[in-house]
Design a protein around this nucleic acid. Structure first.
Length: 456
RNA sequence: GUGGUUAUAGCUCAGUUGGUUAGAGCAUCAGAUUGUGGUUCUGAGGGUCGCCGGUUCGAGCCCGGUUAGCCACCCCA
């Protein structure tokens, strides 16, 4: 056999037929739920102008953006300019002479760009969903790829907290349909701001939040020592410790009464979370957890923050989102508030694979295979196959007159549940033999009865 | 970006302190079986041991480099 000399770029994957089927099962489930809640589809280009993306995801984010090299750099007339421009790139400065486009890093910023460009035509509140691949130049590892799909739903142009309630319901509905047991963590950026203010330290909410965000992972002692290194005193620590300690206690909000008294901004955040939780069903309330240390990295969140974690499996978050007051302001159109969520399809896939949650039917493509037992026989087979296809039955005729053995094995490998045997005898009698390959049951039907047979 | 770890047949993996011609299971193909697959039996094909270099009389095994996978950190879906 010839030696294969080709490969895939790091962190990317091919998806074979079986995998695509399973991925589509997830994607169509999510899309259907988005539509149920009145969201409309949107697609944006794979690439954006570099300016649109840079600086939106923090310093780390900038490094992880895949830049696209400009064309025509080999033009001899431009050689000097290209060399000068490349010098600047080497010094860590992006330069339009070398690159001015990049692959999109998420769906939220391109959406904000779209809204900014089209705000005068849109009907607000504008509810859109978007299912597309995004790219990050991250080092691959478990549940992390360089090309992966995001499924986002956002509402812009409304401050109503009912949007948050709806989005959480979308999460619960989708994961229930997929049979994934999960927990939604909720927090509010204003709570983080409040706790940060309470410390009285000159530290930004973002810096503070990114430290306490690791609470679940590293434990409270590590957080404490890290903060002390930044100049926190025992006195500062005492003020905030009690709030960190009640993280993950559902809903635990009443325990924040003292924080509400000390910080009006925190009070606002706590009220928002209470409002949202109060609109959930009792069953949902059991699966949502207020977590005052939940931060998430993105700079632009201003209100509620969500994160979804699958239970009983070792995997990072399978979804996340939050409210942002002024995302389009970055593109010159102020005062359009929004809130959105995102599903991580690739991780959801990995979770479902690990917990074996894909239903059996997902694997069935072709429902019925007609055996090819000769020229005259296959002609009759074809005349029966076409009406079945018209009725929506997925069927195929074996491509050549081969031994039974071969044709059976083909059906087995393709996971086709039914085979139709139509040979000389059957042609004469005007019948067919229909065999269920799983159970081994075989019946003789008239050709007319076959066309009316209900294939599952 | 930092660190760890792995790389042997299409797949999953053995391969002893460095020693002749590198093995197994599964899969594939052919036959037993020209109108009944899955089970069974027989046989066959398939490997420059990731790539480059070094040590050695001799390297799948030791050393250096490199590429890729996996895992962790950072960060994140």
């Amino acid at each position: 056999m010839a030696k294969v000399t080709v490969g895939l770029p790091q962190g990317t994957r091919d998806f074979g037929p079986d995998v695509v089927r399973k991925r589509n099962y997830i994607l169509s489930t999510i899309r259907n739920v988005f539509e149920l809640y009145g969201f409309q589809p949107l697609e944006t280009p794979a690439m954006e102008n570099l300016d649109t993306l840079m600086g939106k995801y923090g310093e780390e984010g900038d490094k992880l953006i895949f830049k696209i090299l400009n064309n025509g750099l080999d033009n001899p007339e431009k050689e000097k300019q290209v060399r000068d421009d490349f010098e600047k790139v080497l010094r860590g400065k992006n330069n339009k002479g070398i690159t001015e486009r990049a692959l999109k890093y998420d769906l939220t910023i391109p959406f904000a760009r779209y809204v900014a460009m089209n705000h005068s035509q849109l009907t607000f509140p504008f509810k859109r969903y978007q299912v597309q691949p995004v790219w990050r130049a991250d080092r691959p590892q478990k549940g992390r790829y360089r090309e992966f799909y995001q499924c986002d739903a956002d509402v812009v142009g409304s401050k109503s907290l009912m949007n948050e309630v709806e989005l959480i319901n979308i999460y619960f509905t989708v994961f229930e349909k997929l049979n994934i047991d999960c927990t939604i963590k909720i927090n509010n950026r204003k709570v983080l701001t409040g706790i940060t203010e309470l410390t009285g330290k000159p530290i930004t909410t973002k810096a503070f939040a990114s430290i306490i965000d690791k609470l679940d992972k590293v434990g409270i002692d590590k957080i404490k020592s890290e903060l002390f290194e930044l100049g926190f005193t025992q006195n500062d620590w005492t003020k905030i410790e009690k709030f960190l300690k009640i993280a993950d206690e559902t809903p635990g909000l009443h325990q924040f009464a003292s924080l509400k008294m000390d910080s009006s901004i925190a009070a606002e955040g706590i009220d928002e979370v209470s409002y949202v939780i109060s609109h959930l069903s009792d069953a949902q309330k059991k699966k949502i957890v207020f977590n005052s240390s939940l931060a998430r990295g993105l700079d632009y969140y201003t209100g509620c923050i969500f994160e979804v974690k699958a239970n009983n499996v070792q995997m990072g978050s399978i979804g996340g989102g939050g409210r942002y007051d002024d995302l389009t302001g970055l593109f010159g159109v102020p005062n359009i508030p929004g809130v959105g969520i995102s599903f991580g399809v690739d991780r959801i896939y990995d979770v479902m694979e690990e917990l074996q949650l894909f239903p059996e039917e997902v694997h069935i493509g072709t429902q019925v295979l007609f055996f090819n037992l000769g020229t005259a026989e296959s002609k009759v087979a074809f005349s029966l196959l076409q009406p079945l296809r018209e009725k929506g039955v997925r069927g195929e005729l074996y491509h050549e007159n081969s031994k039974f053995d071969k044709q059976f094995k083909y059906a087995e490998k393709k996971n086709i549940p039914y085979v139709v045997i139509l040979g000389e005898e059957e042609v004469k009698a005007g019948t067919v033999k229909l065999k269920n390959i799983k159970t081994g049951e075989q019946q003789t039907l008239s050709q007319e009865a076959l066309i009316n047979f209900s294939f599952i």
